[in-house]
Design a protein around this nucleic acid. Structure first.
Lengths: 226, 226
DNA sequence: CGGTCAATAATATGATCAAATTATGTCCTG
DNA sequence: CAGGACATAATTTGATCATATTATTGACCG
């Protein structure tokens, strides 16, 4: 009855809408500072306004969207201070999740991560920004998910949700050439069971990426990347 | 037409409802594992169901409520692992916020904190659990707010939102006698400008509190406090 | 003990109301 | 006479509610 590509017809509409808008933010379809209107999303996604409202509330709570004063919602525009806070939180949490993951990872898990990293490199070579953002996100997310941390993983995903739009801007402006890639070191450490090395690789990856955004922001002058 | 106690008629209803439910969770009016129905809240709060739906989505995103499979929402029941994750995140973030706060705090700010701490102690002496939870939350929140960290502060508040219900259970079960109170040390360090001491005091406060919950959970046997 | 039916609660749509922003026109000033 | 600013009106947008639809739960009957 349903089309073959309807894997989860039981999923509520607000969940679908939430994921759609979330991907728009994560992979840069919505730029920082860009206003987001409920009715615009209703028209764009072809659904009622209640699911859209609920999705926006959720994303606002996660920091992916921001209440801009008078009932106006937009994608947040990061300041240097915000970037600093995000870097601190990421360095505090993500290496720890990686260390937890090392105890749970099976060889099959590591192979899957390596395959994802190959797609990351392919995207970098091809200069495909969208694909790079997706696969890079997938690499980190999949690694952390191995930790089985029910609370910390969603927290970290919230941090990525805040960094996403700015990362997109930086990639679009300076290309995918000198992007951070400590993934190979991370995978090697994961295979060898060297927790400290894995932790360091992830930390370096984070710091490099954040430094690039910070540099772009400093070059842009003001508080904004827009 | 409206009652005299309508101080903010301009605030949207979903915001009001959100804060009401949030306080219920934070201060233990809703117990862990307790199911939360939309219509129950509609009847209890005397509002429409749309604001209630939006508030529930927001709280679910923050981890204060949990989607329990079949479109059922309830207050999460912490396992030992979840408690461990929360303790890690709190220790990673809250002492840092305290250190940031020390640079911004004015004498008036510190006096206000001391007044709040006095109310914490009064609540402990009186055995008033609800007041203790409120004032203790207020003490930490106000301290961290001094840091001016727009991203980290809401993150930490999300952590408190998850701990709240369990803390209430523990207080109700074992009383307010041997609760952690490193607040005096924290205030002294804050006045003296000793960042390391302040950081240590906050960390000890967190660890003691979490250890109490962990002990209660271990005594209860299973994964649950309920 | 299993299956079916009814009741209940959540999901989702559309309509209505209120608020805000934008655009326009007029008046005042240089 | 021209340009800008303020006030007002209109359109756009968000908030809320009432209602219909659907799925799940629990009970009752075979």
């Amino acid at each position: 009855m349903t089309a073959p590509n309807a894997p989860t017809p039981n999923l509520p509409a607000h969940e679908i809408v939430y994921r759609q808008i979330r991907e728009m933010v994560l992979f840069g379809e919505l730029a920082p500072g860009q206003p987001v209107t409920i009715q615009g999303l209703v028209a764009q996604l072809g659904t009622g306004m209640t699911p859209v409202r609920e999705a926006i509330r959720r994303l606002t709570a996660e920091g992916a969207l921001e209440f801009k004063g008078n009932r106006r919602v937009c994608v947040p525009d990061l300041t240097a201070q915000h970037l600093h806070e995000l870097a601190f939180a990421r360095v505090a949490l993500e290496p720890h999740l990686a260390e937890l993951a090392i105890k749970q990872a099976t060889p099959a898990d590591i192979d899957a991560l390596e395959a994802t990293d190959a797609r990351v490199n392919a995207a970098i070579s091809a200069g495909d920004i969208r694909s790079y953002l997706e696969q890079n996100y997938l690499f980190h997310t999949a690694l952390y998910a191995l930790s089985g941390a029910d609370i910390l993983c969603p927290m970290v995903q919230g941090l990525w949700l805040r960094v996403g739009p700015s990362l997109r801007i930086v990639c679009g402006r300076y290309g995918t050439l000198n992007l951070p890639d400590k993934h190979a070191e991370a995978i090697a450490a994961l295979r060898a069971g060297r927790a400290a090395d894995l932790s360091a690789a992830i930390r370096d990856d984070i710091v490099q990426g954040q430094d690039q955004i910070a540099a772009a922001l400093a070059e842009a002058g003001g508080d904004s990347l827009a």
